[in-house]
């Protein structure tokens, strides 16, 4: 039951990244880190302190950072580029497309402050299109972990996963509800509950919101299958279809535009193999604005009651 999931602490997912890359630095001498004047925000302090020669400050020059990352792979390095999600993707799309994706370079594009929960900085920084941008690139893997522990494990896992990766995480302090020793496998969906009435597919921060919603739904007697799609691409199609063939309907939940993100991926998969009704929780083709993270999630329809409403709606469409 979802209500049995234990919250073991509160931490930002970006700290999971910072702790992950620090641990990785000790394990893998080929791992190098780059930043574009956001080392503090990306929690790179411990890595920089212990591995100063493997850290490259690029200044506020993201395009150059991505290119340097591509070059570092020639010679066997595993570069982790770090900045906010907006500057990790939209700002440098062509650099990623040509120098990284088309060139098949083993660059790990690590992006913090994704989505609305960036908060007060507002829409200039709250990218809600990055999952779509990245998943459209041939050969790009897209990972959106759900909490501190999972972000740390994902940071470690991508070092051993050849090819370009987009790793998306965020700024706010968020509940920790996965096990630090969990098995984390790229491309393998994670089930938080098994149920028969509805499949909820969520990623990133929204997995927690989906759990909150799922608890309410369970109390109402609705049997929820809650699936964390931490790897949006390649999508675990088998897990998705096994779930939807049973539940016959789905709700997708993401801190991203409903166009181009997780919802689209689920819709494409199910419509191709076993069509079902789907409701999409995400931003509805809009920009964000300044505000506190929770206020924003509420205003833009990404809070747990919105997920409950979406489930109730989709159940009627079965």
């Amino acid at each position: 039951m979802l209500k049995d999931i234990k919250v073991t602490g509160q931490k930002d997912t970006r700290s999971g990244f910072g702790d992950g890359i620090h641990e990785l630095g000790k394990k893998n001498p080929n791992v190098v880190a780059l930043t574009a004047d956001l080392a503090g925000s990306l929690k790179l302090g411990p890595f920089i302190k212990d591995f100063p020669d493997r850290f490259f400050q690029c200044g506020i020059a993201e395009a150059n950072m991505i290119g340097i990352g591509a070059g570092l792979t020639i010679g066997g390095k595993i570069p982790y580029t770090t900045t906010f999600a907006n500057f990790s993707t939209g700002r440098v799309y062509d650099q990623i497309r040509q120098s990284v994706a088309y060139s098949g370079k083993n660059v790990k594009i690590c992006a913090s402050h994704a989505g609305l929960t960036l908060g007060e900085d507002g829409a200039t920084h709250q990218i809600l299109e990055d999952i779509g941008l990245m998943k459209m690139l041939p050969g790009m893997t897209v990972i959106v972990p759900c909490d501190y522990n999972q972000t740390k494990l994902a940071t470690l896992a991508i070092a051993d996963y050849p090819g370009p990766v987009y790793l998306r995480f965020g700024r706010p302090v968020w509940p920790i509800f996965t096990d630090p020793d969990q098995e984390f496998e790229i491309g393998k969906a994670q089930f938080f509950s098994r149920g028969n009435d509805v499949s909820i597919f969520a990623c990133g921060h929204m997995v927690w919101k989906a759990i909150e919603a799922g608890i309410i739904l369970e109390e109402k007697g609705i049997s929820v299958e809650l699936v964390n799609i931490h790897t949006v691409k390649p999508l675990d199609e088998e897990a998705v279809l096994n779930s939807t063939r049973k539940t016959k309907c789905a709700v997708t939940v993401e801190e991203h535009n409903v166009i181009g993100g997780l919802g689209d991926a689920i819709a494409q998969c199910t419509s191709k193999h076993a069509p079902i009704p789907i409701e999409y929780v995400g931003t509805q083709d809009t920009f964000g604005e300044s505000g506190k993270p929770m206020e924003l999630l509420k205003k833009y329809g990404l809070d747990s009651p919105d997920i409950v409403a979406a489930v109730e709606k989709v159940l009627k469409r079965k």
Binding site: F56, A63, N64, M65, I66, G67, I68, G69, A70, G71, L72, T73, I74, G75, G76, K77, P79, D94, Q95, R97, Q98, S99, Y102, S103, K105
Partner: peptide, 19 residues
């Protein structure tokens, strides 16, 4: 590395030099 979209090659060359 692929090139064609201009302006990217020096960054890549720098990365290779750092490696």
């Amino acid at each position: 590395v692929a090139s064609g979209s201009l302006g990217q090659g020096m960054s890549v060359a720098i990365g290779a030099a750092l490696a």
